Deep mutational scan, measured.
Amino acid sequence: MAAGGDHGSPDSYRSPLASRYASPEMCFVFSDRYKFRTWRQLWLWLAEAEQTLGLPITDEQIQEMKSNLENIDFKMAAEEEKRLRHDVMAHVHTFGHCCPKAAGIIHLGATSCYVGDNTDLIILRNALDLLLPKLARVISRLADFAKERASLPTLGFTHFQPAQLTTVGKRCCLWIQDLCMDLQNLKRVRDDLRFRGVKGTTGTQASFLQLFEGDDHKVEQLDKMVTEKAGFKRAFIITGQTYTRKVDIEVLSVLASLGASVHKICTDIRLLANLKEMEEPFEKQQIGSSAMPYKRNPMRSERCCSLARHLMTLVMDPLQTASVQWFERTLDDSANRRICLAEAFLTADTILNTLQNISEGLVVYPKVIERRIRQELPFMATENIIMAMVKAGGSRQDCHEKIRVLSQQAASVVKQEGGDNDLIERIQVDAYFSPIHSQLDHLLDPSSFTGRASQQVQRFLEEEVYPLLKPYESVMKVKAELCL
Rank of each mutant, 00 (worst) to 15 (best):
V363P: 06
I403E: 06
T58K: 08
D223R: 01
N421R: 04
F449D: 05
L44P: 00
S301R: 00
V414I: 15
V475C: 12
I72E: 10
R37W: 10
G96P: 00
F195R: 02
R270F: 03
F28K: 08
T167N: 03
Q41Y: 14
T52L: 10
T267C: 09
C27L: 13
N297L: 03
K233M: 12
E302F: 08
R452W: 06
I62N: 07
S306A: 08
T227P: 06
V254R: 11
C98D: 13
K35P: 02
T450P: 04
Q397K: 07
G231T: 06
P56G: 11
S434C: 08
L69Y: 08
A256S: 14
T166N: 06
K66D: 09
V219T: 10
Q325W: 04
L46N: 08
I265D: 01
L331Q: 04
R374P: 03
S334M: 05
M316P: 05
K233E: 10
L468F: 08
A3P: 05
D178L: 00
L132W: 15
L443N: 04
L69F: 08
L331V: 09
T38N: 05
V198I: 15
D248T: 03
F212H: 05
L130V: 14
Q210D: 12
D6N: 11
T167C: 01
G4S: 15
K35E: 07
V198R: 02
K170T: 00
A381S: 07
S140N: 15
E383C: 05
Q439C: 14
T350C: 12
G288K: 03
D216F: 08
N421S: 12
T450R: 05
S395D: 15
I373V: 12
K246M: 03
L275G: 06
L183D: 03
C173F: 02
R309M: 11
G109A: 07
P298C: 12
E464R: 05
T58V: 12
S447M: 15
Q356L: 11
L142I: 09
S395R: 07
G451P: 06
G54H: 11
H217T: 14
F449A: 04
K367P: 07
S395W: 06
H400D: 01
E283P: 01
T204G: 15
V168T: 09
I105N: 13
R374W: 07
L17N: 10
L165C: 05
D32N: 15
S151C: 11
L271N: 03
L319A: 01
L252M: 14
E376V: 05
L135P: 04
R188T: 08
G200H: 01
P471C: 15
H437Y: 09
P446D: 02
I287K: 02
D192V: 09
M278A: 07
H159P: 00
